[in-house]
């Protein structure tokens, strides 16, 4: 039987003076294979033209549409309503700056963290157009790719207890980014340089190991593996000096 879904959506527009945060309810008949992307667009087109939310690829690849769906941070585009009860609560991700309703500024936060960690290959080598590329073992390329798959959606930070208390915590996404470059032989940063970046409470030793990030990551990144790789590498650094 076709259900009537009740979407209880958090509303707040910080650009409107005296606007009050509130929850508004919208009813929608459920069609087969309805997902939160289609549902929100239908609500905007038919009921609330000013409803703010972010989607780009709508295919689980770009990381734009993370939100709290019935209390859990996840991607809106690939959440099917058939997996949810009739009452659906939609809230913006915590931790990030709110832009309005379900839209938060994950882009700016991730840019900041990437700049802070200098998330690029550090090398003195110049590119030589005529030369053959440097060889790499395919197994290592695959391993780097595993961490490179992070789509910067922010679910891990929204689900992280430490991040809610310590706003400077790098979070799973930040640590994963470090792991990605640490294991890449093209990046010539030394263990000491890495140690400076991750040895504080903001870094890998600030994690209290509840691993909610690992539960909520929509891309199933090997976070546990990456964290222990960083910890292992970093815990020996003080003794090698």
């Amino acid at each position: 039987m076709e259900r009537t879904l009740k979407f209880n959506i958090f509303r707040y527009n910080p650009n409107v003076k005296n606007d009050k945060p509130r929850v508004e309810t919208f009813e929608l008949n459920e069609t087969p294979r309805l997902n939160v992307f289609t549902a929100l667009n239908r609500i905007r087109e038919e009921q609330a033209p000013d409803l703010m939310f972010d989607f780009v690829c709508r295919a689980g690849i770009c990381g734009s549409c993370a939100m709290m769906i019935n209390g859990r941070p996840t991607l809106g585009c690939r959440t099917l309503t058939s997996d949810l009860p009739e009452n659906i609560e939609l809230y913006p991700l915590p931790f990030f700056k709110m832009l309005g309703d379900l839209s938060v500024d994950t882009g700016i936060w991730f840019r900041g963290i990437s700049e802070q960690l200098e998330s690029w290959i550090h090398t003195q080598k110049e590119f030589v157009p005529e030369a053959e590329e440097e060889r790499m073992d395919n197994a290592l390329a695959n391993k780097i790719y595993e961490s490179e798959r992070c789509i910067e959606c922010g679910c891990c930070l929204a689900g992280c207890a430490t991040a809610q208390v310590y706003p400077h915590f790098l979070g799973a996404a930040g640590l994963n980014r470090i792991g990605r470059f640490m294991m890449d032989p093209r990046d010539q940063r030394t263990d000491e340089e890495w140690f400076e970046l991750v040895s504080t409470d903001d870094g890998v030793f600030g994690c209290i190991g509840m691993m909610a990030c690992d539960d909520v990551c929509p891309k199933d990144l090997p976070l546990l593996e990456v964290f222990s790789y960083i910890r292992r590498k970093m815990s020996v650094v003080p003794f090698t000096k």
Partner: peptide, 18 residues
């Protein structure tokens, strides 16, 4: 071909020949 090698230099983890 130059563009692919350049992207490898910059950090793309291209799949490699086994």
């Amino acid at each position: 071909p130059i563009a692919m090698r350049e992207m490898a230099h910059f950090g793309v983890p291209w799949n490699r020949v086994e």
